[in-house]
Nucleic acid binder design. Structure first.
Lengths: 132, 132
DNA sequence: ATCCAAAACGATAAAAATTATCCTTTAGGA
DNA sequence: TCCTAAAGGATAATTTTTATCGTTTTGGAT
């Protein structure tokens, strides 16, 4: 994935710190602030936590990344892609994307509520096969 | 709704503060910590914010209430009931329950992933009819 | 009704998470 | 190469949440 291009097309200046943030989000799939801070520190020993927060907030505002809030866990951040559901194992804490057709549900809800839906969050949680 | 009974059956001692917390959650449907603090203060002028946090955490642990986390909003709390979806208007911030068949989706996901699902969160957001 | 221990309360301190400020450095267009 | 707006790091301040502690209350046993 070309992170420089991704940053540019979202009207932000390209910095090495930002590229590193996106690289790590991409490697992890989803990453929380503490994990991200540790990872980015490997490249930029003196990166400020404030810089991390500022970038995350800015990238969210500019629709480059997305925050996923999960009850009793820290927020996770991911690079924006097509709407997709998530599934969490509350035993091993594995958290993954799900191949689930969200648009069917969205269409249905738009019809019954007359809302214009522009975002939907689906989080399933339970116990994965390995942990059962 | 009998809140005393609800508290007792969840193995907690009945206090006037807890009843007030549940009453307000029930009245609002969903309420965040700040709103709840203001409301409960009307009955208990000297209630401590710490007490509110302690009770919320305890009631969550004992499955009496539930936290709903929403990106870029403060968490909302609601009395536990059957799994249901939520919908948010990002213009007027109205937040309501949705009559949406979650169990169909859960069944589907259980089959395709081999997870044992015990909870699911569905949050739709967009613009309600009035705000369009 | 009274007593008692565990639990809950309020006040407050402490810790954790997030944001703001300020000065220096850098990105990227002119 | 120059210049300005933006980004970085350091740090302070603010906000949010949790822990502590002494007092009070709940609810079961007497």
């Amino acid at each position: 994935m070309n992170f420089e291009y991704l940053i540019k097309t979202h009207n932000l200046k390209v910095t090495a710190q930002r590229v590193s943030i996106l690289e790590n989000m991409n490697n992890y799939g989803h990453i929380n602030i503490d994990e991200l801070f540790l990872e980015v520190k490997k490249n930029f020993n003196n990166i400020s936590l404030a810089t991390l927060y500022k970038n995350i907030n800015l990238m969210i505002k500019n629709s480059l990344i997305k925050e996923v809030k999960i009850a009793s866990y820290k927020s996770k951040y991911e690079i924006k892609k097509d709407t997709h559901a998530h599934i969490l194992c509350t035993v091993c804490n594995e958290f993954e994307d799900l191949d689930f057709n969200c648009s069917l549900a969205v269409d249905n809800v738009e019809k019954t509520t007359a809302y214009k839906i522009d975002n939907s969050e689906f989080i399933f949680s339970g116990i994965c096969q390995k942990c059962q």
